[in-house]
Amino acid sequence: MIPFRTSQLVSAAGQALSILIFASALGLGVGYLRGTLGVVPHPGAPAPRTAHLALPARHLAHTPAQAAPGSPPKAAKTPRADALPSPGQALSPRQAQRLLATGAVAVDARRPEDYALGHLPGAVSLPVEEFDFYFPRSQARLHPDSPLVIYCGGGECTLSHELADALTQMGFRQVHVLTGGIDAWRAAGLRVAR
C-alpha cells in the first residue's frame, strides 16, 4: 500500500520542476556574467594516467633520459636541436612559435576566464594564482623534460615569471617565458585559439 496520495507526488514533482527551472536560470545567468557560458577548456580530452603518455613522441626523442645508458654524447647536434633556445631563455613570439612547432607545450598562467577568452593554440591552462589546485589537473599534459612556453597577458604581467619559477622549482628543465605575453603574440599576427 502506498503511504501517500498521488496529489502529494504531483506536488513534489511541481516543486522539483520549480527548483530545476529557477536554479538553472540562476546558474546560467551567473555563468553568462562570469563569461564561462559556452566555454569548455579541453573538450573531450580525458587525462591519461601517466605524464609520459601525454608526451608527444618527438619530445622523447630530445629527452636525455632516452639515450642509452653509458652511450657517449653525440658530437654533432641535429639542426632542430640547434634551433631550440637554451633553457630559461625568454622568447619573442616568433621564437615561441618555432619552439611550439617542434612540440613544446604552451602554458597559460592567467585565470581560467582569461584563458577562455583566447589562448595560444593547444595551450594548457595553469593559473598560477591557484597553482596547487590546477597543477595536479594539468600535470598529465606536462613533462619535466619537455620545453614549456609560459605566458600571461602582456605588458607588466608577472604571472608568467611566477609560474616559470614555480615549475622550475618543481623540476621542469626547459621553461621559457614568452616576452610580452599573449598581447605580443597577437601583435605579431599569430593565431589565437578560443
Binding site: I19, A23, S24, G27, V30, V39, V40, G44
Partner: peptide, 19 residues
C-alpha cells in the same frame, strides 16, 4: 556536445546548491 556540456556545467552546481 561541448556547448551542452558547458550549459550543464553552469546550471548543475546551482541546482545542487539549491537542493
Amino acid at each position: 556536445p561541448p556547448l551542452a556540456a558547458s550549459l550543464v556545467a553552469n546550471a548543475l552546481p546551482m541546482i545542487e546548491l539549491a537542493c
